[in-house]
Design a protein around this nucleic acid. Structure first.
Lengths: 223, 223
DNA sequence: ATATAGTACATTGTATACAATACACAGCAT
DNA sequence: ATGCTGTGTATTGTATACAATGTACTATAT
């Protein structure tokens, strides 16, 4: 017999609640790179004890958003220009691979949704709202990535994407590039639809190249 | 349950000591997939409190060697045949990419060391000692991976490699494949030396293909 | 015999207490 | 002034106490 599924409001361990709160704060720039993360302070601020805060910070460290020094503490991770290039180099390879797999594996339902997402992104650029644009862009790429059906590939790419989320947000603010992005999305999408693997890989690769150029021209690093 | 011991020689936070101890136990098969990891039990066995054990287990979860269910506990992660295929599919793509970068970036000193590692592996196969063979194989591939100079790529590949370490160990026991492995190493190495990118990518890819075939033919999964 | 409720126990989740360490700064000797 | 040393404080590292929850088992009713 079916239990009255009163939404036993998905129970989340406090450590996960804290983790998501801190993660969001870092990705949105509320906590800036280099800022120290002190357990007691955060715990009081969030109204919990040190334990879940500690566990959340450790989780963020493994994700690469926080760097720790033993017996010294944790701080929001800074990314160097070199680190950014490294991340994007791996992403370029994996995105191209995704594009290849998508050519072979994307089903009709996903193709339909990809087309919708493509149009939604084009429309989003008209709003001039960076948050909306960023979300539409993520949606578009997520459909391609998820169509590979490879969970490990999906989580690996998502981790890499997270590393540069803060910087990607900046470059999306530049309206002059939106037109180019839409064109690149179209190239990639059409290549996938026509199962043209080489073209799809090239389109995915170019997409990251341009991202890299834009980010590097806008952000200037300390080192 | 196996006996666990800590190596306290060098000073490391206890959580890291415990982490390494558990990690080693999992990778060597001392702790088998599906085995539950209970904090109190492990803490007593290792002579520490629950806190560092908890933190070590969480770290292992993020690495993918342990799977956790909230309020239920942790167990040594089992990998399904599907999961194994996923891991190897990503590795194939990244290893091929490494091979490409190695063609462009490997310096003379690294080439020398690669040649030495190649010969050391050939020699290691004569010992019939799987541990020695596995180490020589890792050494060979590490030189290639490290020659890319991309830290993010290196850590990503190492994480993937860790997922299948237990199974790779099994397939290395089969002496009949050693000759083939040596030949594959030579193909890859020569392609890198002659900067033949396409050939290097193909060799790296083939190497993973054969690994996959061997592992899947030897291990049989529950699901 | 089966199903249900209830209860005891094992285990994790969270909070707090205590220990160890790093850092800053003051005081002193040179 | 400079450098050393000691002391206090802030912060992390570890241990333990307490709360919440899931699981197995028992007793009971049907």
């Amino acid at each position: 017999m079916a239990k009255l599924s009163l939404n036993m409001d998905e129970y989340l361990p406090l450590r996960d609640v804290v983790f998501h709160a801190l993660r969001r704060a870092i990705l949105t720039g509320e906590l800036v790179p280099g800022e120290r993360l002190m357990e007691i302070h955060l715990a009081q601020q969030l109204g919990v004890s040190r334990t879940p805060v500690r566990e959340a910070i450790h989780k963020l460290e493994l994700e690469g958003l926080v760097s720790m020094i033993p017996r010294k503490g944790a701080m929001v991770a800074e990314i160097s220009e070199h680190g950014l290039r490294d991340v994007l180099e791996v992403r370029r390879a994996l995105d191209a691979f995704c594009a290849e797999l998508a050519c072979e594996r994307m089903n009709d339902r996903e193709k339909e949704r990809l087309k919708e997402a493509y149009e939604a992104f084009a429309k989003a650029t008209e709003t001039k709202d960076t948050t909306v644009i960023a979300k539409a862009d993520v949606d578009f790429h997520d459909i391609i990535i998820n169509s590979t059906g490879n969970e490990r590939l999906i989580s690996t790419i998502n981790n890499l994407a997270e590393q540069i989320y803060r910087y990607r947000f900046e470059y999306l603010k530049d309206e002059s590039i939106h037109k180019g992005l839409i064109a690149e999305h179209k190239m990639l999408m059409d290549a996938i639809f026509s199962k043209n693997i080489e073209e799809a890989k090239r389109a995915a690769s170019t997409h990251i190249d341009n991202q890299e150029k834009s980010i590097l021209s806008q952000i200037h690093f300390k080192d």
